[in-house]
Design a protein around this nucleic acid. Structure first.
Lengths: 142, 142
DNA sequence: TAAAATCTATAATATAATTATATAGATTAA
DNA sequence: TTAATCTATATAATTATATTATAGATTTTA
């Protein structure tokens, strides 16, 4: 039930970009250094973020990555849903046919409700909110 | 971010026992058959449930397992917390020392809030609630 | 009291998912 | 045209999950 590093690192990646939103494109290398994450791993994580249009990239020297939208318009819930590959706690929430017991399964409803509660919270938090906190507190971490 | 089979099977295990609460102790074999789960795996899962006093066992022929408390007093949240080994979505929620960035990490707060939202929901559901649903609907599944 | 049914404990294995790294290539500003 | 950067794909390492196997302990009942 733990979050994968994909969604955690991805969130920190975007938060880092939000914290440096005013300047030009950021090198992944510099983000990786600040965050203590391998560049190569971030390169993989940023791909879906680009596809989903959270990030724009510029190639060549002086290139890098920028947020494609303002931090106010990006929620943590979206990021996690994208990088965890869905908003469910069990396979059968999204694909009932994955389990032949789905039809008359009582427990699957509660897993759906639990996931919904969790994402309701995550969807209510934008990168801008995190920015605000980080300005009073510190950096980024987990 | 998926729930492990441990907590899913554990919940179904207890629900099955709740559905047959009136009779004597249930054989793990019969539960395993009804639920389509291997006996050997259930034997492992039931151990922490016994330690935490959700289940009582009787050895020997005619032995088996019974709920140690009425279904009204057992919430799904407790079961999941027990079998997932905690109520957090990230290691650092429960053990901040597990990450040297914890101190000034912004994101860890939101993972804690998300987990709290999820467990608030799960804690509000008892086995008795599931029983009620299963009486109108069907069996147990996921 | 002995046999059989059951639970208990621990170990071993298999499988899959996650995390991380490596290699080679494409793009483009200067 | 070179060097800095992003892009794509493949591979390896690690860890977690799920399952099975083996041997043992307990206890009812015939």
């Amino acid at each position: 039930m733990k979050l994968s590093t994909r969604s955690r690192y991805g969130t920190r990646l975007l938060l880092d970009m939000a914290q440096n939103y005013q300047g030009g494109p950021l090198h992944l290398t510099s983000i990786a250094n600040r965050q203590g994450i391998s560049v190569k791993y971030l390169e993989q994580i940023i791909i879906p973020l680009k596809k989903a249009n959270y990030v724009k990239s510029v190639r060549g020297p002086k290139g890098g990555h920028v947020l494609a939208r303002p931090p106010e318009e990006i929620t943590v819930g979206e990021i996690v849903a994208l990088l965890e590959d869905g908003v469910s706690l069990v396979e059968c929430s999204e694909r009932p046919e994955s389990c032949h017991r789905s039809e008359n399964c009582v427990t699957r409803h509660i897993w759906r409700e639990a996931a919904a509660a969790m994402f309701a919270k995550l969807n209510s938090i934008t990168l801008a909110d995190l920015l605000k906190i980080s300005e009073t507190e510190g950096g980024a971490g987990a």
